[in-house]
């Protein structure tokens, strides 16, 4: 699905004294089945842009179209519905729920969809198998190492079989070996036909051969946009 951004702006604390314009007129096209990386200094607005693309928040103005559909004006109720079918999220701090088992954490995003339990379990187990986590399926997530937690987070992002994966600073909590491993997993996902969108200021990520395109941001605007081969 092609993602198209047209003059996107995001203003925080509108109309208050601390009004702040985080994104100032970005137009972009993100092609399907590519790995795109947003890079830029801290505070340049990468996360903000990513959350708008991933239907987590709405732009103050501008149009975002996802395939055929204009999503920028949709109420939250419908944004959520699109989000859970289309996007999978991998967060910097993994954001697993403490006290639940690995399996339960993975299945969480599927609960509101009312997927039949059997099918859901099967799929969750096959994901765990694929990422080498079968052994851990019943362990509480507190026990996991950083790398394992990362892979659990990927499984969770995959549970609703989304077309687009969004990862915000996925390697910030990993050492360089694990970061490279992560890029390997991203490559697998890319090979299996997913669109991947990553933000990072980690050279291991944006210099990796897996990345198809790097978009550099500064102060809420696009600085440089170059394909990598």
């Amino acid at each position: 699905m092609l993602i198209e951004l047209n003059d996107i702006r995001k203003v925080f604390n509108q109309g208050k004294h601390n009004e702040f314009s985080a994104i100032r007129g970005i137009s972009l096209q993100i092609e399907p089945n590519k790995v795109t990386c947003l890079k830029g200094a801290s505070g340049s607005g990468k996360t903000t842009l990513l959350s708008m693309i991933g239907c987590l928040s709405r732009p103050t103005s501008g149009r975002i179209t996802l395939g055929e559909q204009n999503i920028s004006g949709l109420p939250e109720r419908f944004l959520t519905d699109i989000r859970r079918h289309t996007f999978g999220f991998i967060f910097q701090k993994f954001n697993l729920i403490q006290g639940l088992s690995v399996l339960e954490n993975i299945m969480l995003p599927a609960y509101p969809l009312g997927t039949p339990h059997e099918a859901l379990m099967d799929y969750a187990h096959s994901l765990l198998g694929h990422f080498g986590l079968s052994r851990l399926s019943t362990s509480p997530v507190e026990w996991l190492s950083g790398g394992e937690a990362q892979r659990v987070a990927i499984c969770r992002a995959m549970i609703n079989d989304p077309e687009i994966l969004i990862a915000d600073e996925p390697t910030a909590n990993l050492d360089s070996k694990l970061s490279r491993e992560f890029m390997g997993l991203v490559d697998d996902l890319h090979q299996s036909g997913k669109t991947v969108l990553i933000t990072s200021h980690d050279p291991i990520v944006f210099d990796s051969p897996v990345i198809n395109r790097v978009v550099e941001m500064c102060d809420g605007q696009v600085l440089k946009d170059e394909p990598c081969y």
Binding site: R77, L96, P109
Partner: peptide
Amino acid sequence: AEEKREIGILKAVGWETGD
């Protein structure tokens, strides 16, 4: 804080306000 974070995670992974 723990509970707030949990609800935040649920919403981020695709739970709707109504859910």
